[in-house]
Computed example of a mutant assay.
Amino acid sequence: MNHELDRELDHELDHEAVLARYDRQIRRDAQTDSPGARVERAGAVVRQIGAEHDWNGVHWADVDASTADAVIAEQVRYYTSAGREFEWKLHSHDRPADLADRLRAAGFVPEPPETVMVAEVAGLPTEPQLPEGVRLFPVTDAAGVRLMADAHDVAFGADGSGLGERLAKRVLTQLTETPDTIVAVVAMAGDVPVSSARMELCPGTDFAGLWGGGTAPRWRGKGIYRALVAHRARIAADRGYRYLQVDASDDSRPILRRLGFVQLSVTTPYVYQP
């Protein structure tokens, strides 16, 4: 791991230093999050392209007011020619300041923003406290991935979008081909999956990313989300990661803040459909 920024305090993050590290390690030096996808560095842009069930999109763009429109148009041509819907992952500190307006003008549609939150692993609880009757089940194979998809549908409803199935396919591919890049877990109430979560690992960086954690309505407010964070924090600590990073929804942000996470930026997915 890279620990050159020694001025960070044990219990207080140096916001600018951590943000610079996040931009460099997670965005500019992005690694593929799926064995079937590849990260490309094309001029001013760092982007990922893969199959339809993979994440396709722009991690980073070094643009200004004079170059942004042309770079946006090139990404539209590139992904459209490949038949891929894609996302421009815009952060609130990205430049130029009107980049969001330029993306909308080019046909991108914004999805709800999320707060990028970060915490030092060393300061987080690592012992899951679960409500009675709930246990954590590690996901390591196709049967476990099926439970993850079921938990997603229980938490968010089976809306016909196929998101749970696409996610399950991606997770199974990672578990099979690059198991060092993912940790997945399901919270089970008896034989019923009521929540699921995963941790995306970026070998060679200081960051592990937390994803998921949506919980079945009748089990919300009972500490399952916090337990899933603690479970993954313990694994991240064991594997030497310094920070946990989350793109937090409005529901999870207050929980994460109480656990010690702080806001780093705000990210908005701008989606383009061919």
Rank of each mutant, 00 (worst) to 15 (best):
F108H: 01
E8P: 04
I255D: 10
L9F: 08
C202W: 13
T267P: 01
S34A: 06
G240V: 10
H3C: 07
L147P: 04
D191Q: 02
D247H: 08
G240K: 13
P269A: 03
D6N: 06
E40N: 03
H93G: 05
A97M: 05
A70Q: 11
L5W: 14
D180A: 07
R234K: 12
E4Y: 05
L175M: 00
P112H: 01
Q263A: 04
R198F: 06
D191E: 15
A20P: 14
M188G: 00
R28I: 11
A105R: 15
A143L: 12
A42G: 11
H59T: 03
E114M: 07
A100L: 15
R198W: 04
D206H: 03
V271W: 01
W219Q: 07
A42E: 15
R234V: 05
T176E: 13
L103T: 00
W211S: 09
L13W: 14
A100W: 00
D191S: 08
S81G: 09
D159Q: 13
Q48K: 04
T115R: 15
V71W: 05
D33R: 08
D191F: 00
T67C: 07
K169S: 05
V109G: 02
P254D: 01
P274S: 00
A149Q: 15
D69L: 14
V116R: 01
R28M: 07
I26G: 03
P113T: 10
D247L: 02
P131S: 03
H91W: 12
M1Y: 09
R7K: 11
L136K: 14
R24I: 04
L256G: 06
P125V: 12
I235G: 11
V186H: 00
E4C: 02
A70S: 04
F207G: 10
A237M: 14
T126Q: 14
H152R: 11
R27L: 11
D206G: 04
V186G: 02
L124Y: 07
F261W: 11
L175C: 05
T67E: 06
I49V: 10
G209D: 08
A97C: 02
A70C: 07
V63D: 15
H231I: 13
R242C: 02
A20T: 12
A184T: 14
I255F: 02
T178Q: 08
A184W: 14
N2Y: 09
R239W: 05
A37H: 12
D180K: 11
V116T: 11
A149V: 08
H152M: 07
D251A: 06
H231N: 11
S161M: 07
A44W: 12
G164M: 09
V185S: 01
Q129W: 08
G212R: 02
R77K: 08
P110Y: 00
H11I: 05
P217C: 03
A122P: 15
P112R: 00
S195Q: 08
S265G: 11
A236W: 15
A30V: 14
G190N: 04
P179C: 12
L172R: 06
D251H: 03
A119F: 11
H59F: 09
P193R: 02
W219E: 14
S249A: 01
M188L: 01
V185A: 05
L19Q: 03
T80Y: 05
W211E: 13
R170F: 04
